[in-house]
Design a protein around this nucleic acid. Structure first.
Lengths: 162, 162
DNA sequence: AGCAAGCCTGTTATCATATAACATTCTTGT
DNA sequence: ACAAGAATGTTATATGATAACAGGCTTGCT
């Protein structure tokens, strides 16, 4: 029904990074978007971990690797990535994650660990229907739905339960 | 199935304020919580409108009415109200709304107008099940779910469609 | 009443997040 | 080569949130 929420499941993570970059390049190619150096670097930074990264944390990584790093640089790249579905904003943390499967026009939902800030993306398209009809009833035009589930991931749970 | 999302529906709003304050007093009484002057004032401010109000906007209202107004005062009151379910934080706007029906231990979902910041609270308990099981599958312990639907409310829609 | 403990508030300073505004440079199509 | 639009550089500042510690109020106990 939904894909595996990778963040909390063992997997060969190198593949995520390579695939993420390849997907981004393909998507930008297909839509005539410019995946510039700055945007590429920011996406790489996000892809390093299945974790919410703040804009200023992105900025630190940029300056560590010698790049020109000022707030607008990070925010512009992040805005581009979010606008085109290559990354998502985690509202409850004011932070960002790379998208799992860019280009699919999905309805994402996020499992967010409040301890390690790990983020797993799942698909929530099954969930949205009753809410949509509630919106329609009052004439509300839905543009975007954000579903964020906060809690503790398996590694951060104190109890060994599971 | 869900209650009416009041924000976008005509109603006698005076009742919302009175009922909101009465509910808050009853709830605090029942749980031995102190609904102090500062907390009461902040809740009143939130109840004035079915709209997301930023912490510093709350602060302005406080100082306009002669109250001592510094950031921690507003945030402490807001934290109290949110913690006890008398208000909710709208993550995508970093702002707050009074709760529709405090004390019911509900699973709220919000319709949020990106233009006027109007917020309607609906119940989303029907929505959560598939996501819960996805969480359970990976051993993620859900603590809180936030569902925020952004779009345009009937008054802010350019088209008269509806 | 007197007192202690805990809760609440005041105060100052600072951190964190995000954007405005305008200049400059790069890319692309012609 | 050139013009137009896109992207980036730069400075400053708006907006949102908290740390840390001092002081005052409430409550329950004796």
């Amino acid at each position: 029904m939904t894909e595996n929420p990778l963040a909390f499941v063992d997997h060969e993570h190198g593949g995520c990074i390579a695939r993420g970059m390849a997907d981004a390049e393909a998507l930008c190619e297909a839509r005539s978007l410019r995946l510039t150096q700055a945007r590429r670097r920011v996406l790489e930074i996000l892809l390093q971990e299945h974790r919410a990264i703040g804009a200023y944390e992105v900025l630190n990584h940029l300056s560590e690797s010698g790049e020109n790093a000022h707030p607008p640089a990070a925010y512009r790249a992040l805005d581009f990535l979010v606008e085109h579905g290559l990354a998502h904003k985690i509202e409850c943390l004011n932070a960002f994650v790379a998208c799992n499967r860019p280009g699919e026009g999905h309805a994402p939902a996020f499992l967010i660990c409040r301890d390690c800030r790990g983020v797993a993306e799942t698909d929530a398209s099954l969930n949205s229907t009753p809410l949509d009809s509630a919106a329609e009833d009052v004439g509300f035009a839905v543009e975007r739905t954000s579903i964020e589930v906060e809690g503790l991931c398996p590694s951060c749970r104190p109890d060994a339960a599971r």
